[in-house]
């Protein structure tokens, strides 16, 4: 597999021979990827190619699925987290996730963000207020909602809801943010807004984003990995992968010949 590994000292997250099975279905085959700190990595490929499966391994969300087997190593800051006695709850605090469809809780805007920190032990009101404000500011939502923190989050527009979900993940101060097609349910304007937001967040977070939108990968990702039928075909700096793909399957996909 043509690979352009990130420099060793900047590795935030790394997989070694990661295999995923749903019963007998071998959904992900020997994925070896390295994600560099403070970079955005895009995972592209046709539907069902295993990119979402891969993403959901990184914060151990796949463990929820019955009959799903994950083999191989997932190194977070150098430690394997794919072990039976790993504390998944702690892992997920450090590796946040944003989903395809905005899924704010049926709570107020304030509680959407403060809820998880509260459950994780932050009880101090001032601290929570501070956390809510800083997370909303980071997600570029503060100006729009600062006056109505007590109203239900469901009254927000789709794009605002998705930014709220990002703020909700940021409130736990994670190192890594996983985004599973975060813009697929949004209109182009909200999409661009979120893209520029992600680019700004890059300074503080490592991000992995699954996307169907090749332009999006091109616009925001530093590196891109191309998945096909459960395999990582090619992983390289985005510009290199898009302009000079090494593997013919990559160039076929990029030129729209399948998927």
């Amino acid at each position: 597999m043509p690979m352009q590994p990130a420099p060793t000292d900047r590795r935030a997250l790394q997989t070694e021979n990661l295999n995923v099975y749903y019963r007998d279905n071998h959904a992900l085959k020997d994925a070896n990827l390295i994600f560099a700190r403070n970079e955005i990595t895009a995972l592209i490929g046709a539907s069902g190619c295993g990119k979402s499966t891969f993403l959901r391994c990184l914060n151990l969300m796949n463990r929820q699925i019955p009959h799903c087997r994950i083999e191989g190593r997932i190194l977070f800051e150098g430690t394997d987290i794919n072990t039976a006695d790993e504390d998944v709850y702690k892992v997920r605090r450090h590796i946040g996730m944003v989903f395809q469809r905005p899924n704010p809780f049926y709570k107020s805007i304030y509680d959407n963000i403060a809820f998880a920190p509260r459950q994780h032990g932050i009880r101090d009101k001032a601290e929570l207020d501070e956390l809510v404000e800083s997370s909303l500011r980071q997600a570029a939502l503060w100006k729009e909602v600062s006056g109505k923190l007590d109203t239900t989050a469901l009254a927000l527009s789709g794009g605002q809801q998705q930014r709220l979900c990002i703020a909700r993940a940021l409130a736990l101060k994670p190192e890594v943010l996983l985004l599973d097609e975060p813009c697929s349910a949004l209109d182009p304007r909200s999409t661009r807004y979120i893209e520029s937001l992600l680019t700004e967040l890059k300074d503080a977070y490592t991000m992995v984003i699954v996307t169907h939108n090749l332009q999006q990968a091109w616009r925001i990702a530093d590196r891109t990995a191309f998945f096909l039928l459960g395999e990582v075909v090619e992983y390289n700096a985005t510009t290199a992968l898009f302009t000079e793909p090494v593997d013919t399957r990559t160039s076929d996909y990029l030129s729209g010949r399948f998927g």
């Binding site: 800051e77 430690t79 504390d87 709850y89 702690k90 450090h94 190192e175």
Partner: peptide, 14 residues
């Protein structure tokens, strides 16, 4: 950070 991850992991599990 990895050390922090390892230490007293059981509150949530219990």
């Amino acid at each position: 950070m990895p050390k922090a991850l390892r230490r007293k992991p059981l509150g949530k599990r219990q």
